[in-house]
Design a protein around this nucleic acid. Sequence first.
DNA 1: ACCTGAACACCGTTCAAGT
DNA 2: ACCTGAACACCGTTCAAGT
Lengths: 188, 188
Amino acid sequence: MARPLLIDRESVLVAAFRIADEEGLAAVTMQRVATDLLVTPMALYRHVANKADLLDGLVELLLDDVPLPPATMPWRERLRWIAESIRLAAQAHPAVFVLLFQRPATTAALDVRRAIYDALRDGGVPESEVARTERVISTVILGFAASEAGGRFRNRPKREVDSDFAAAQAMVEHYLDQMRGEGASSTS
Amino acid sequence: MARPLLIDRESVLVAAFRIADEEGLAAVTMQRVATDLLVTPMALYRHVANKADLLDGLVELLLDDVPLPPATMPWRERLRWIAESIRLAAQAHPAVFVLLFQRPATTAALDVRRAIYDALRDGGVPESEVARTERVISTVILGFAASEAGGRFRNRPKREVDSDFAAAQAMVEHYLDQMRGEGASSTS
DNA sequence: ACCTGAACACCGTTCAAGT
DNA sequence: ACCTGAACACCGTTCAAGT
């Protein structure tokens, strides 16, 4: 049988992801990733097109790590679950999370978006308003999570940031209740 | 009289700001800034501590460019003015704007924050809620502006993004009306 | 005090070469 | 097909030297 591969795309991304988590995005260099994998930097180029492609891969990995709620859960709880999952992912992987703001939705982000669409529909948001409602509430949650991940709240006590997040969530839910209009079918 | 300085801190920041605007943050290197100023890269280190200091200076420059509303304007219009100013600054200087998410509030950001505080107080938000209200609405507006500046809405038509911004603003205003409580003193 | 020259330890990326 | 060696054109930053 053929000589086994020393590395593949996944091992490259996993190594880079770990470096980002532990030492920040600036530490993620082709040379450093290669060193951790015991290969030369040039070996990486067979598995990622270039560094931008590598960073795109990190965002995918991050979003795969955002657990989506079971479809059996009441819609309102599903939305809270997703918001909480995104915030936890931002806290666990702040360096990678900030990349989310630098590029348009990738395929993994589409899974999250679809889960939000489903919850909004189940909550009675009219079909014509589902897409916009998702964009607005995602921007609020992502904005909050990215602020936290990026360090904009660095000087604030954790309890305060937590209750600010609760306030932002309350604002979103209220907006949602308006969007649900008269066609609302269920509550929770 | 002494030989005139070739460069000073302001000229360094202005040169870097222009490069960021025209070619993005990746183009802002010490060597490139120096080249534009007709000096060697090492000359910059007499005027900025290092590259991080230079980037901090760019954020200051950006925030100085956010016009604040006249105090005579009704409070609600002042808030809309500020939100609009921030969004325009993000559109005009997207590369620098994303840095705002990477660092805690600087002195220039404090001017903006104070203007928001004043408007909230004039709108009847209880003193105990002013600070949190400012944090929540700033996060929404900044999150939206950063999404736009970072390219998260890159694939969307401008009209759609505009109306999403209006929806986010409406959400914020509604939240605000709740925060105003019974002590509201004026409307507009 | 302000700027330069030379140098150091890095970057991302290419290309031809090995197996 | 996969990885390496050598090389290129960059980075940020330091230090000693010039004026």
